[in-house]
Amino acid sequence: MSSGMSVIVRTVTRFTYALIIVFGFYVIMHGHLTPGGGFQGGAVVASAFALALVAFGTAGLKGALNRHLLQSLEEVGALAFLGLAFAGVGTAFFYNILANSGSVFGGSDPAALASGGVLPLMNWAVGLKVMTGIASILIIMVIGARKEATE
C-alpha cells in the first residue's frame, strides 16, 4: 500500500490530479449558477486526494497532504460558515445580508458570477470544510488500515 500502484496509474494520476481539483473548484465557484455547490465540489476535490492516495500510497503523504493542516482548514471552513450565518443575526439567523445590498455580491442580476449575496462565500466555506473533512477521514483510515496490515 505504501509503495503505490503501477507506473501507468501514477502517470495518469499526475495528469489528471490538477484537472480534477480545478474542476472541483469550478463546481464550488459556480454553485449559485449551475448544478453543483460546496458539497459536490468538495467531494470532487476529495476524490482527487483519494486518487493520489491510491496511486502513490502513504509514502508521498508527508509533504503534500498534511493531516493537521487539513483538520485546521476544516475548522476554518466551519467557523467561516458559522460567522456568515451570524452576520445576519441582526434580522434573523442565516439572514442574507449581502443580497440586494448593492455591494460586491449584492447585484440585482441573478445570472452574474458575483451575485447571490452570501451564497458564494458559504459555498466556499462548505466546500473547504467538505474537501478537507473527507480527505482527513481518508488519510486517517488509510494510515489505520496500513498499521493493521503490517502487524
Binding site: 449558477l33 449551475t34 443580497a99 449584492g106 447571490g116 451564497l119
Partner: peptide, 8 residues
C-alpha cells in the same frame, strides 16, 4: 436571494 440555482 438573487441566485439562479434554487437548490443552493
Amino acid at each position: 436571494v438573487v441566485a439562479n440555482n434554487v437548490v443552493t
